[in-house]
Nucleic acid binder design. Structure first.
Length: 486
RNA sequence: GGCGCUAUCGUCUAGAGGCCUAGGACACAGCCCUCUCAAGGCUGGAACACGGGUUCGAAUCCCGUUAGCGCUACCA
């Protein structure tokens, strides 16, 4: 707790699924604080629930964190490997008289709980046996769980986001710390590991607030120094309920698949429950580290709004340094089957032009890849709406496209200036506005009504392809008028 | 039921007693720019949960109510 030492923080997920956005946000906040203060960020996998934990999930957590760019210090700790220490700590508490054996079987306990209904509390007077009897039954080999004997008084702590939180100990039941099979219960395992890992700052979801007094009691019983606590708000779905599958994508991996950039995800997540204090919204990881402060932490649960995430992604997609976003876009383009990474690299200059044109127009890399399709595939498919809108009058369109083609073909140089000059002159000679030429041309080149500026498209496509597409459009229009005539 | 946490536009938030006629962003609508689409610019509608205090003065402090969420396991 002393301010003169950099803090040690940890993220401690249980590997029972993929890295959830809620977990990712908790990890991010811990990471940001560690990096901001020059502290240490540790990772602990809480795999004590053998039945639900999988290696695949552990890998998914590593992958998710790495994708977000959240690196951890020191060796990853696997909680399941620390069973012996957890057990030792439980017995230490027992020997010090701070805990006691409970010989009630789990089945009996369940029966009592059911019979008593809602407000069931164990009766310490009946369960906490006289020392001799407890020792005798234990010596006889009778199985027992170990319960922590909650002392009188209050347990309070200064929370970094909530200020003081106080619990009367009478509201805390003597809780089990070691099961009768010798395995630790969550609160004991967490405290035992956090002490061992020398964690000085525990930042976690506020669903853990009611665990905290129990854990503080355990720290005290074990004679360890308390860490600082910060309980951050949860993330909810659009209906205000806990984020779940019903809300669509909830794993960070899902968002990678949907074309979201890690920089955008991190930026968006950081602003859910935290604010830099002013109106700044679009920030790089570096800026987030620099500006992060506990003061900006919110107390209220935040609702995950995918719309704003998309907007944020669009911002990063178009504003971040190109070499930051390029690998992610390239993956989307390769995944879409448009090109190989090698072929893109071979045409590096052209590819950068393409990205420069497209990235300001797309909100996701998926969307960008979709828009890029027409620059990779040999033929153009004409969108029905585009035809209806700009190729309505077939003979007129045909002659205009033919004239456009001829004019472009006579250009000395294939530059935007030359094209513009030539095409504007053509428009003037035909007595129409530039748009009357550009729009049908756009349909001929890309098949749809939306694209980068028409000269940029011509540049990207190149002279040969552009002229070939114009020829193909003229042929298509010939077929159309032929079909109409017969 | 008990205990705890929370409460500013639909959403994310600024606000730490007078700077608030409550600011920004997303979304929505309109306009401008313009060869289209984006981006950008401008404009508009939109909030201090309710009721009591304290104070010359409250979104900000206190109490209560209501609502939401969490915990109440030999789950994590």
């Amino acid at each position: 707790m002393s301010a003169d030492h950099p803090p040690r923080l940890r993220f401690a997920p249980s590997p029972t699924g993929f890295l959830h956005v809620g977990g990712a946000r908790t990890a991010l906040l811990n990471w940001l604080y560690a990096r901001h203060t020059g502290g240490t960020f540790l990772l602990r996998i809480e795999d004590t629930d053998r039945a639900r934990s999988t290696e695949e999930s552990t890998r998914a957590i590593f992958d998710g964190l790495r994708w977000l760019g959240l690196d951890w210090d020191e060796q990853v700790v696997f909680q399941g490997a620390n069973g012996e220490r957890h057990k030792r700590d439980a017995f230490r508490l027992l020997e010090r008289g701070l805990a006691y054996r409970d010989f009630t079987t789990a089945e009996e306990l369940a029966r009592q709980r059911e019979a008593a209904g809602d407000g069931f509390r164990i009766d310490r007077a009946r369960v906490d046996l006289p020392q001799e009897e407890s020792d005798r039954r234990a010596a006889a080999g009778e199985p027992f769980a170990i319960r922590f004997r909650v002392p009188d008084g209050d347990t309070a702590w200064h929370d970094a986001v909530h200020d003081w939180i106080r619990f009367p100990n009478k509201d805390i039941e003597d809780f089990i710390i070691l099961r009768s099979d010798g395995t630790p219960v969550y609160n004991l395992a967490v405290v035992s590991d956090d002490i061992e890992m020398r964690v000085t700052f525990v930042m976690r979801g506020d669903d853990h607030i009611s665990n905290t007094p129990k854990q503080i009691l355990l720290y005290q019983g074990l004679g360890a120094q308390l860490p600082r606590f910060a309980h951050v708000p949860m993330i909810h779905g659009i209906d205000g309920k806990k984020l779940s599958k019903r809300h669509g994508a909830t794993a960070v991996g899902d968002y990678a698949q949907l074309g979201i950039l890690p920089a955008a995800m991190v930026n968006f997540l950081s602003l859910l429950g935290w604010s830099p204090g002013d109106d700044t919204e679009v920030m790089s990881l570096y800026e987030l580290i620099r500006r992060f402060s506990l003061d900006g932490l919110q107390r209220k649960a935040a609702i995950f709004d995918p719309k704003k995430l998309e907007w944020m992604n669009g911002q990063h997609l178009s504003l971040d340094p190109l070499d930051h976003v390029e690998p992610h876009i390239t993956r989307a383009i390769v995944d879409a089957g448009l090109a190989t990474a090698e072929s893109l690299h071979a045409r590096r200059e052209w590819y950068e032009q393409l990205l420069t044109q497209l990235r300001v127009r797309a909100r996701t890399t998926l969307e960008l890849a979709q828009q890029a399709r027409v620059y990779f595939e040999p033929t153009v498919t004409y969108d029905e709406e585009a035809i209806a809108k700009f190729w309505k009058d077939v003979p007129t369109t045909r002659s205009m496209l033919q004239a456009t083609r001829d004019r472009l073909a006579t250009l000395d140089t294939w530059t935007a200036d030359a094209m513009e000059q030539g095409l504007r002159a053509l428009a003037e000679s035909l007595g129409v506005s530039g748009g009357k030429i550009f729009q049908p041309l756009r349909v001929a080149l890309v098949g749809v009504t939306a694209s980068p500026g028409i000269f940029d498209v011509l540049l990207l496509l190149g002279r040969d392809t552009s002229l070939a597409r114009l020829d193909a459009a003229v042929r298509w229009l010939d077929d159309a008028s032929g079909a109409a005539a017969s």
